[in-house]
């Protein structure tokens, strides 16, 4: 009789099963639907359709625009905040960090609803500035994801490096530009990828702020709602490709950075 041997390998079985059922299988189904038509025949029409339809391309650009602007706003707000927090000798530092994280503990739709009320009060109607409102809503939602990684990298930085820069003749600004900024790049990159990618697909914020413009997420939703599974799958697949590309790019930058290439 072959006895069941408990080994380290066996511990991987549940994980492997999980991967197969919840990651690989859906992906295969997605690919299958993306490259077939209603009759189950192979076709590239979904792909060519996406790139020849000005509406879908427009949505892609709009999504990209929203994500880019949101990321930029988050970065501009988060970097100084994270820098000041990480470098200050405040005793209440951890409390302030907590204040930035705390909104994450409050239900997301509640937060956006609250923001909606404020914006309606300030602008009269949400319909006047749909793009601005979306960017505001998303920035509010994603800001902690940008602050945290930057804060962590800066506070982990060896203070002696800054002293070394000052010692070698760099003024405060030069020391920041030549040492602090490049060394906080890994934090910036992980912050950017944690904000940019969700911002491209998160259509809940748009919906809740009555922005009728489609972004990628809502586009997929609408395809599936109208039972066009093949078109929807293709868009999802394209989005997946963009995400992969983006991840590879940022990883490339990071590697180059650790290898010692000058970025700035």
């Amino acid at each position: 009789m072959h006895k069941f041997m408990f080994s380290r390998k066996n511990l991987g079985i549940p994980y492997g099963l999980f991967l197969a059922v919840f990651v690989m299988a859906p992906l295969l189904v997605l690919i299958y639907f993306a490259f077939t038509n209603g009759q189950g025949e192979f076709t590239l029409l979904n792909l060519t359709g996406f790139f020849s339809d000005p509406n879908t391309l427009g949505t892609l650009c709009y999504s990209f625009g929203i994500a880019a602007v949101t990321t930029a706003v988050c970065l501009l707000l988060a970097y100084p905040a994270a820098y000041i927090l990480a470098t200050s000798r405040l005793k209440a530092k951890s409390v302030i960090v907590l204040l930035f994280i705390m909104p994450m503990w409050i239900n997301f739709s509640l937060r956006i609803t609250a923001l909606k009320e404020i914006l309606t009060w300030a602008e009269g109607s949400l319909a006047y500035h749909p793009f601005l409102n979306t960017v505001l809503g998303m920035s509010y939602d994603f800001l902690p994801f940008m602050i945290l990684p930057i804060y962590t990298t800066i506070s982990k930085m060896d203070e002696a490096l800054l002293e070394a820069a000052r010692d070698l003749g760099a003024g405060g600004l030069q020391a920041f530009l030549k040492v602090t900024l490049p060394l906080s790049l890994p934090g910036i990159i992980s912050g950017v990828s944690m904000v940019f990618l969700p911002a491209m697909t998160n259509y809940v914020v748009l919906d809740m702020l009555y922005n009728s413009t489609y972004i990628m997420g809502s586009l997929i939703g609408s395809y599936f709602a109208s039972y066009n599974w093949h078109g929807g799958s293709m868009i999802a697949l394209i989005l997946l490709g963009i995400v992969c590309l983006f991840t590879l790019m940022t990883r490339g930058i990071e590697e180059e950075n650790t290898r010692g290439g000058m970025l700035l």
Binding site: D158, A160, L161, E163, A164, A165, R166, D167, L168, G169, A170, G171, V179, P182, L183, L185, N257, T258, G260, M262, L263
Partner: peptide, 22 residues
């Protein structure tokens, strides 16, 4: 006088070399 204006240089305890530069 701030450190960058002194004609004095330091070799630090744990070297403090810039890891992002060759």
């Amino acid at each position: 006088l701030p450190p960058n204006e002194r004609p004095i240089n330091t070799v630090f305890q744990r070297y403090a070399l810039f890891p992002h530069m060759n």
